[in-house]
Design a protein around this nucleic acid. Sequence first.
DNA 1: AACGAGTTCAACCGCAGTAAC
DNA 2: GGTTACTGCGGTTGAACTCGT
Length: 489
Amino acid sequence: MPRDKHLYKCAHALNSVAAIPRRATVVNCCSQNLEYGCNRASMRNFGPVNRARILAGNENSSVKGVRSSSNNNINKQGGGGGQDVHSVPDSPMLEMNSSFGSASSSPSLANLPPIRVHVVEDPKAAMDGGIEDHMGRTPCCEKNGLKKGPWTPEEDQKLIDYIQKNGYGNWRTLPKNAGLQRCGKSCRLRWTNYLRPDIKRGRFSFEEEETIIQLHIILGNKWSAIAARLPGRTDNEIKNYWNTHIRKRLLRMGIDPVTHSPRLDFLDISSILGSSFYNNSSQMNLSRFLGVQTPLLNPELLRIATSLLTSHRENPNLILQNVQENQLCYPQVQNQMPQLVQPNQLQTLIDQEIPTCNIPFPNEAQLMEPNVDQFSSNFTNFSSQNCQLNDWQSNGMASNLGEDYMSLPNYEYYGSDQSIIENPNPSENSKFQSNNSNNFSFASVLSTMSTRSSSPAPLNSNSTYINSGSTTTTTEDERESYCSGMLKF
DNA sequence: AACGAGTTCAACCGCAGTAAC
DNA sequence: GGTTACTGCGGTTGAACTCGT
């Protein structure tokens, strides 16, 4: 059963089943229209950054646009911000949330439709807890009977009521004051990730996904920093979305989700396999081992990268030296690879620690992430006589490529140019040559991606979701294409 | 209908950072 | 400057759920 239909079914059955999806509680909790109630006194507990955040939150509470837009989404999505009931246009959830979604003066859970929640009681929770003060550093959630696990609507209501009256902050004493058998940390997490009124639920839009990918390139796994630039999204939500959607998509595309460069992680495997790695059989085995990803990478490029990486480990300056020497000795290579072998850039990247970008080997990214304009028109000429792409295909790799690869139009592996250029690394006994039958062009790929990304018209619409109040259709392939286009960033 | 593998995501854990005393 | 209290953050977990057979 499609997920949406299932949740639609769940929406119908909210009052009749003992257990409902946890996400059904999202519909209720996040449809609240609370005012931030953080008072100045409690703000003393926060540092300047957090105070600023709180003030921003208070500003948001007065800026109704945030909330009203959320309500609009609720109404249009019919899911009340719920994760997966958004595409059920006329479900009962629509009416339910429409009715209370606009009731900004009634933040009580009593206004919400009654639901039953499958409460997973922690057998260890004696419910006799209270938070005692301890000297020294103690774990936030002591194992003294405080409840753990999913929150019940009653608990949510208590927390909401308390925060409405007293504001949040001083999470350690909040649960006791609010009558909750939870640790302060749990309360804070519940509030910040779930109950906060300005949280935007629902599927991530193209724009949001684009922002996440861009910011991840710059910031890495700084989810809170990324979340700070995505209004209404929590770091936890972004983190989950990254791990469950974007990361997998990038991996399928052969892109390292950490470095955002084409994956080179198996280069270490190559060293394990030894020099025979690049013979045909080993390559085939590795290709099979890596599934669809290997064919997306130019083996010669990988070989060069391996050499560079190995050299870099042995002598960080060697790469620069080689580059400079190669540029002197092989001007045609210099012309062919302007983006690859800019010594000043390379040295800068080698010298620089880019703290926010988790690229273990900076020029690895430089090597593999082509500048579209320059790289695409020049690098397509590379190929290798060591590369046995014909063998890949003849051995069935083409059929193993998977739809991710096969769905990419104009995805060529080698340039059509018949020119032969010498290997920039003379120590390697190989030449670059072209292969007409197997063409690869980053330009074609990226231009295709770019075109798609700039106008995300659906190719095969198999899903529908709401994007900023407007209905947008997309497919996973489209998003993958879009992500690939992000390489240009 | 039943089962198992895979997926999703709310919640937890533990550490780091920071402010107050 | 040391200690304590507290919050923030990123990684991880596991229950609920989906999907294919």
